[in-house]
Design a protein around this nucleic acid. Sequence first.
DNA 1: TATTGTTATACTCTATAACTATA
DNA 2: TATAGTTATAGAGTATAACAATA
Lengths: 170, 170
Amino acid sequence: MVEDVDGLFSLAPRLAQLGAALNSNWLHVRATELAGITLERPALQILGILQASGKPLRVGEIATEMRVEGPHVTRQVHNLERKGLVHRVVDPDDRRARLVELTPEGDEVNSRYREVVMTWLSHAFDSWSKQDMDDLVRLGGRMVDDFLVFLQQAQDVEREQRPGRRGRER
Amino acid sequence: MVEDVDGLFSLAPRLAQLGAALNSNWLHVRATELAGITLERPALQILGILQASGKPLRVGEIATEMRVEGPHVTRQVHNLERKGLVHRVVDPDDRRARLVELTPEGDEVNSRYREVVMTWLSHAFDSWSKQDMDDLVRLGGRMVDDFLVFLQQAQDVEREQRPGRRGRER
DNA sequence: TATTGTTATACTCTATAACTATA
DNA sequence: TATAGTTATAGAGTATAACAATA
């Protein structure tokens, strides 16, 4: 166990608060407005995941990344497809699977959104020195990694202990 | 603007990922299960806010803290009241307002939940040195503060620019 | 006349169950 | 017989509008 439990106890609720703020309605409404986009939050998240990965992804891969169940992704992808922001192709390696691919329009839309958010962030952290920002990026990145690894292991353990869910991601 | 824009660009999506994980269904289901609680996520969030504040709060104050609209809080508080975890009293200073107060049971329930989450966190950050954890707490805390201040200002600016919402928090 | 909170309603987000098509 | 995805349905999460009570 980590030594500095008190520090952790003080940081945790504030990170939760940050997480809530990052997922808040206001932020999404304002950012889409500024970027001239009409799109639900999870749809935009899917575009972001596809852009970050740099290659087409399976529906299941997107669901795992988002930590949601498959059907939710299916529905969002349908909306995105109707708007011409992604298209789906059958995976040549496994014809049960579908690969979801960004269209040029989808790529462009996500870049506009990203631009708005990044501009906000660079203003919010206006006063930070390069040193502090470097340290934050390093430690914050490690924190995210360690937490996500822990979570993954906890989920794997649960899956082993509870049969009857036959491998579906939870 | 901050100098180290690249660092920020790399950290931001990972923080969003962390935020999504912290708000994920799996985490909530598992934590409530372990704590022996049956309660929706926003309800638990309200208990946490009340416990952290250490005093009864108005419905409006809770809504602002959660960054949601008032009616949502009203509904959650009703559920909590039915379960005996909070009770509402008329604010003696302003009889329009209601103060929401933790009951001993509510306090106890939130402590159990908190215990589960904190145990997880201390395992997830097992390998961290005291120095690194101190730095993370310091820089991470400052990051949260700066971001929330920025957000608040942005919201205030918007409220000034858009009449017709007559002061209701947005 | 403005503000606090509530009620009613509707939209968004996400899960579970049942299914299909491959494997 | 198991896995990838889809369709259908339901529940959780949250917002907007209209209202009541108090200031």
